[in-house]
Design a protein around this nucleic acid. Structure first.
Lengths: 231, 231
DNA sequence: TAAATCCAGTATCCCAGGATACAGAAGGAG
DNA sequence: CTCCTTCTGTATCCTGGGATACTGGATTTA
């Protein structure tokens, strides 16, 4: 076992609050494999047999969903320490329901989910901790999905945009903040077309509700922005 | 502790594989409350303080997300034994991010989440089991949300409908099946207006792709239905 | 058995926003 | 500096589907 993998594993929320010696121990129980991928390689292909929970040790991996018409949408982008596949694992899916692609050269660890749930009938102290971490991890994923549903459930672009801007405002606790994505990505995230979003964004500006320059946004009329939520 | 509540708790996936005596024990640790609701009562209101994980003991409860203008999306409908609020609990939300409404007269148990993660530092045999159940439960929720996102990401009513019908077909493994909801609920679920959905449904029928009478649906031209997926 | 209520289908109107194409700005590479 | 690419805003056109209102059938209540 190379120590660099161990170090990378330490970053994963799955192993949070478990100390180094124990992680080594856990990993040995878990029957893991490690694989390397080059940029643009598929780490996981859609509709292929599910083979285990993945932990990204190094590089960058994105979850991509592709429509039959050929358009590819990046659903989620992961940095080292992130895990994926755990939701599929624990709800008994047998195949991957999305593809994962390396955005840069990446190293991925695969572990077998059954062992996580059953490995320590004897009750090692870190086993409990892993289960708690798993609960937190999966809950977090579910929460992100839930937020996604919120956005997608809104029908108007104004509604989506104002909700998004208000959330960014709350996160930064400042009327001026920077958008974490460019226009194309934001439009994808809100599931609207880029020109339409741009149009509405500018309308808001013209109505004196917001100001923006590049990725910087400033909320001018908070009340008016909140009022836009209602549609 | 009334035995009927105990019996109802036994049905919950949260307590799966825990025997009766232990459930009684767990419940006593968990500091639970029980409340009754009439049809259409709100079990939980949007934006009110989060008060604990809910277990539906009797009746029917639906999670609804609604905008002020009245657009309503049924995210999920629950039967006795189902739990909700556990995702919020374990990602540290302080307020309810959706409303829950009783679809019929219902009884709901509320338990306090901190205790689930920490109650048994001494390692009772059922504690571990509850954590495993929680992982399974939350994963299942995340999976449902993921499916929901898939529906909402489709832009055309045809796309949503055909995806939904194909899923029902796969579930029943039969070209003829019954829809589990009426038209209003289905329209809510797919986040489209009821008349528009009705229109598209009838178009499909007129094109010889499906047949339907009330809640019964029969797929006639599977290939054509699959072709509609290509939004 | 009449009245009230719920449910599904249909028609009409009309607008939010998608598709597309283009233009100017900004940054990077040679 | 010049070319090239990426990003954003803008205009034009046009359709999918939302809002609304009405129908008739089914179900429930009295």
């Amino acid at each position: 076992m190379q120590p660099d993998y161990l170090a990378a594993s330490l970053n994963s929320p799955l192993f949070k609050d478990i100390d180094e010696g124990d992680i080594l121990h856990v990993l040995q129980c878990l029957d893991f494999q490690i694989e390397h991928y080059k940029k643009n390689d598929y780490v996981v292909r859609l509709d292929t047999p599910f083979d285990g929970v993945k932990i990204l040790l190094a590089g960058e991996v994105a979850i991509v969903k592709e429509t039959k018409s050929g358009t590819r949408v990046i659903v989620n982008a992961f940095k080292p320490g992130a895990t994926f596949g755990e939701v599929l694992a624990f709800c008994g899916e047998k195949i991957w329901t999305a593809a994962a692609q390396a955005m840069s050269d990446s190293t991925v660890m695969t572990i077998h989910p059954e062992k996580i749930l059953t490995m320590c009938q004897r009750g090692c102290r870190y086993h409990q901790r892993i289960l708690v971490n798993l609960v937190l991890l999966v809950s977090h994923k579910a929460n992100i999905l839930s937020r996604k549903v919120d956005y997608l459930s809104l029908k108007s672009i104004n509604g989506k945009l104002s909700r998004y801007l208000l959330e960014q405002y709350k996160l930064s606790d400042n009327m001026t903040f920077k958008l974490p994505m460019n226009r194309v990505e934001l439009a994808d995230f809100l599931n609207v077309s880029r020109p339409s979003m741009s149009r509405e964004l500018c309308k808001m500006r013209d109505r004196g509700i917001i100001e923006f320059y590049k990725e910087s946004v400033r909320i001018i009329d908070l009340k008016a922005l909140e009022a836009l939520l209602e549609d």
